[in-house]
Nucleic acid binder design. Structure first.
Lengths: 124, 124
DNA sequence: CGTAAAATGAGAATTATTATCAAGTTTTGA
DNA sequence: TCAAAACTTGATAATAATTCTCATTTTACG
């Protein structure tokens, strides 16, 4: 991957501004300071950075995709009321991969858990 | 929900023919015997049936959506080579909901786990 | 029956994303 | 250093999946 200013801007926007943003959200943030960054470049870079393991595209949420700069293993919770996405520790499903491999005979290379429900704020 | 022939056809196609089909796959199956069923009707009915809890829209796979007539709790495994979707027993992640609720203080109403990797056939 | 509510087909519209391609930028190595 | 190769970009067209619109038809029920 060669250096480009645009890629730096995209990565910085993801790291410094919001947690779990969509591409559209990042686009609007980036537009303010760097209106020269096009949408194609944004999508291209998000995909390349995810491919390289530098960021993560969160599977399991319906479109639009959300992105995460935290690449450590963890799960996600989406609040059905406010729509926010929260992190959930990977401790909640220990051994889930080994158990699945045992049970199925399949080789698991990745997995994602998405919980839906009501976050603390929205329960009130 | 009122009765309609089309809804019956959609549900039957899902139950009797393939496992975990996409809307497109169902459409092509239905077309053979019931070419009068339109795509709008297919999507409408899949959503309504899912809403009513009669079938399930599998979250966590990227588009296109896959549907499941098995509404009992279970997870899914998608083979990265052949693309097939397999069921995984809910035993592989016991207590995952209670643990998550404990850890986060959130109320979990549903969750889905999607594993990716290689199925038995594709490991060879 | 008669009518209100629900469902339909056809196709337009929408949303998110990817592809195309000519032009600009970065890297390479002679 | 400098030119060629490889990579990246912006603008926009294209695609894919799904939802919406609306005039017409079907269903439920008093």
């Amino acid at each position: 991957m060669n250096y480009s200013k645009q890629r730096e801007v995209v990565l910085d926007a993801l790291i410094n501004n919001v947690i779990h943003p969509t591409a559209e959200k990042l686009y609007s943030i980036i537009q303010i300071e760097y209106p020269e960054v096009s949408k194609a470049t944004l999508y291209r870079n998000l995909n390349q950075l995810a491919e390289a393991g530098i960021i993560k595209k969160i599977d399991g949420l319906e479109a639009p995709a959300h992105f995460d700069h935290n690449t450590h293993p963890h799960y996600h919770f989406i609040c059905e009321k406010c729509g926010r996405v929260f992190d959930v520790s990977s401790d909640v499903a220990k051994d889930v991969v080994s158990k699945t491999e045992e049970e199925t005979g399949f080789k698991v290379t990745s997995h994602e858990i998405v919980f839906k429900g009501l976050c603390k704020d929205c329960q009130e």
